[in-house]
Design a protein around this nucleic acid. Structure first.
Lengths: 321, 321
DNA sequence: CCCTATATACTCAATTAGAGTATATAGACA
DNA sequence: TGTCTATATACTCTAATTGAGTATATAGGG
């Protein structure tokens, strides 16, 4: 009698915090289950806007008070494993990115912080090219690109080798683009190399029999949300001063640099980084110094809130070094 | 007996096309009603993803086959006039941006193309600073900034004068930031200067009695979606070659420039624009020339699709001139 | 007092961006 | 035919930005 199944709106948040030089996200972890992002339904009765709804259940569920929050994307095929005969309610999920500082209070029972490069290990180039790329991913992607079935020859304007080149820099001239996190994950999913693809019954998985775990999988489409968050944050860093949402009120320039590197997944040129940050007027000295650095004491800085009033585009653009 | 009202997902699209030097959007227009964006519900039974759903009902409703499509934002307070006692279904709306070329076929009955600067006239600086700013908007915004009520003294980290400075460049040093389209519309709404604010019973409207129409209003929150689309497109132009989605297969560099200027809302330096576009390898000469230009014949170019395989970030960054 | 580790300052070349001048080639029209 | 006008296209110049490197400063540890 009902012409369409009911729809539910799910909000899930990638809540990012850098601790001990590693970016982490808040996950709910249960035995024998993949990790999941904090998730809550949107109830328009209680909350006027999506943002308010998100802040509320995050507070209830984790005890955290979110500061910076940004909507990422709305996915209609949550988990991608809704079957055609599925009569239950359909879930549309709205992904969010939230940033918090290395935090005083521990999250509540059932949730914990997990390293985000545990889920997407090929994204961390701080110690050189990750071996998982050379040893596991690239050989399989090459096989997948060579094997061209009719099924999706029309699926894209680009061929599979071209897509590998763009997303994974799989030839000599190409450069690894740190912002293509989502594109890389989607491509791995499509090639059947993400455990979620197997769960969803994706056809490409039949190519592989002894597939190792390529990054920790997550429930539903949460790894996709995480990849979206990483893409967005890596991009936004370069033209908005969002990085300071991850830092304490006062910090040394080297601490700032380490946080930036943790997010970008590669090193930056130290001297140029200092120049950029200081010339852009992003920070001001507090007058204090930190002697905890192991060498000459470092001046402490704070974020200059006035930059919000100044130039429209400002951030920490910087390529490797 | 039901603990929450049912939720409906609405998809609406800002379908942009430049015709005769003016950007237009497709609207459905009825007598005695404000214009609305093409709107359709998302039915997960029929369409696996939101994008597919969008393309489908746009085809049915307007006869258009969309090419480039990009999700903008998901709003939970659609129309913002849902009352607390509203027992009907709640609508979450997902905004989309779509780009089509100046089109051969006319849209179906009931829909038509409307100039987007008709809705947001203060955004078009191609003929200098719009008079609506100096004569209507700025004096009222100054009054609104000066009048500080307790209601929202805590609403923002920035004061009202600071926000005016950032969004509307309302002092000597500040520059108009063409990408802040959404922020400007939101501020006008908040100041009670958008007709939609009056419709929604916003308290700030009581400041004004003889308020002229500041841009054509739209139904629901559609002018907000349009502003989001304009912001996104103006930004994206600068680092992705999306502009070509609005152009025919072959074009002169001046035609390309005119389209860019139409979107950005200001003029660019002609010689530098040429240099940028050619050096970036965005286009290649077709070998033909166009004598329709009124002066020396102009070489015709086409978009070089190979750029998609090359540099990760490429577009037409260019400030006024 | 030297060694090491980090902080901070400064230099230099290559590239890019903003603004302007100069030249080329069509049609219109005297 | 020649000149005017309008547009197209090429080139110059300067300032700012970026990528990469060298040099110097100041702490603690042995």
């Amino acid at each position: 009698m009902i012409s369409q199944a009911s729809i539910e709106i799910g909000l899930n948040a990638a809540i990012v915090s850098v601790r001990g030089g590693q970016p982490h996200i808040l996950v709910s972890r249960e035995a024998d289950q993949w990790d999941a992002l904090p998730y809550g339904p949107f109830t328009p009765i209680d909350h006027r806007t999506l943002d308010i709804g998100l802040r509320n259940w995050v507070r209830e569920q984790t005890g955290l008070e979110l500061g910076y929050v940004e909507q990422l994307y709305t996915f209609g095929d949550r988990g991608r494993h809704a079957q055609p005969d599925d009569t239950g309610s359909h879930i549309v999920s709205v992904g969010y990115l939230a940033l918090i500082t290395e935090d005083p209070l521990e999250p509540l029972e059932g949730t914990s912080f997990a390293r985000w490069y545990g889920f997407l290990p090929w994204e961390d180039w701080r110690n050189g090219k990750p071996s998982i790329l050379t040893e596991e991913i690239e050989p399989r992607l090459k096989r997948w690109a060579a094997q061209m079935d009719q099924d999706d020859s029309h699926a894209s304007v680009l061929t599979r080798p071209e897509r590998l080149r763009i997303c994974f820099a799989m030839d000599e001239e190409s450069n690894w683009d740190e912002e293509k996190v989502l594109e890389r994950y989607e491509l791995l999913y499509e090639a059947g190399l993400a455990a979620e693809a197997k769960r969803d019954g994706h056809s490409a998985v039949k190519l592989w029999d002894d597939l190792p775990q390529l990054g920790r999988p997550m429930q539903f489409d949460h790894r996709r949300v995480l990849a979206t968050a990483m893409s967005r944050l890596r991009g936004k860093l370069k033209y908005r001063p969002v990085i300071f949402e991850l830092l304490p009120v006062s910090f040394t320039l080297f601490e700032l640099q380490k946080i930036v590197e943790a997010i970008l997944g590669h090193h930056v040129h130290k001297q140029n980084f200092r120049r950029l940050v200081e010339n852009a007027g992003l920070v001001e000295a507090t007058g204090d110094v930190s002697t905890q650095t192991g060498g000459r004491p470092a001046k402490l800085f704070r974020f200059r809130r006035d930059v919000l009033l100044e130039r429209p585009s400002i951030g920490v653009k910087m390529k490797g070094g």
